[in-house]
Amino acid sequence: MEATRTEAQDPARTEETLVRARAGDGEAFRRLTDPYRTELQVHCYRMVGSVQDAEDLLQETLLAAWRGLGGYEGRASVRTWLYRIATNRCLNALRDGARRPAAVPGRNGKPPLPEATRERAEPLWLEPYPDALLDGVPDGAPGPEARYEMRESVSLAFMVALQQLPATQRAVLVLREVLGFRAAEVAEMLATSESAVTSALKRARAAVAGELPGADLEEAPLPGSSRERRIVDGFARAFERGDVDAVVALLTDDAWLTMPPVPLEYQGIAAARNFLSAVAMQEGRTFVLLPTRANGQPAFATYVCDPEGAPYAHGLLVLTLRGDQVSAVTRFPDTRLLPVFGMPQSLHGGRES
């Protein structure tokens, strides 16, 4: 990877590689595009909120780039050109809507869900993103226009805020304030005017500011720190034994329990206790939790313990921490996500090592 990254930073070598790629050299094309694959996939994820869709859109982007090499005139960098293709592929996918499931999983009424604190007008189509796939994404701000650091720009709170934006506003906010492209570059990518970009950015900023909790990320323990491990381990022990009181004791007074894409959301100690008792931990249900990380946050693959068989998959939990407590628990009920995190669908023979 380092060799291709160095090549991408050398204009003379890039031009030489580009000439070979235009002549049909697949290896040259790979060397031209490989330095950007990971960050392009993360870009697609920010745009569409789905890990699998992001990978599909990355492949569509690379195929379109391969086919369109003859039309690439080099006025923009290879990276900017690739982002233009990827962004427009994502916008097309969002307008099409065909990738979205027809029904919301997990709402079969068994058991019926308690009355929610809030019900969103539309399902939130969002999946968690494995931290393992973030390796290789540049941490530093890629341009002077960037406002969000890497950790913040993949957090669940930021992703939830992004998914509330209209597609074009979403693209403008990501391109300008996450990736640091200039207004003129974004206008060219989206085939619009700089004034339209500025207007869309203003509206997107206002909407995102109203969604982001702000303090959670700033007050959260550092990833991998002993403080984070202490909180996460305590949560896992309490959740595994189905101890509602112990789980609730770890929550902030204003903690949220959410289950994308189910639009019902629960806030506060009383609502959390009611939900955990009536649904998650009903009738003494216990769990096995296997630790992982998603969106820069601690997470677990969860398995319900079945007395008559091996623990079976129950989805993914992602924790948002504030200080020494948990300010949000987000459950993703789609068990098809587990293999993306390298987790099994069931635990034959008990807890895996």
Score class of each variant (00 low, 15 high):
Y129S: 01
P213M: 06
I85G: 11
D245M: 09
G97K: 07
R237D: 14
R227C: 04
T6P: 00
E60C: 00
T4E: 05
F181H: 15
T6K: 05
Q41V: 10
E240V: 07
R5D: 03
E73T: 09
L289N: 01
L69G: 11
A21H: 08
V154D: 03
R89L: 07
R79M: 05
A196L: 02
V137L: 05
R237N: 14
H314N: 15
T286W: 02
L251P: 03
F29W: 14
V329N: 02
E149D: 09
G136W: 05
T302F: 09
R99F: 13
Y72F: 15
V172R: 10
L338R: 09
T335S: 12
R99W: 10
G309V: 00
Q52V: 13
A12Y: 12
R84Y: 06
G309R: 04
P263H: 01
A76P: 00
E55Q: 09
A310C: 04
R151C: 01
A209D: 12
G97A: 10
V160E: 14
D253W: 04
L264W: 08
D96Y: 13
A157H: 05
L133T: 04
E15R: 14
A184D: 12
T320R: 09
T87P: 05
S226V: 08
E39S: 12
R205P: 13
R99M: 09
E265K: 09
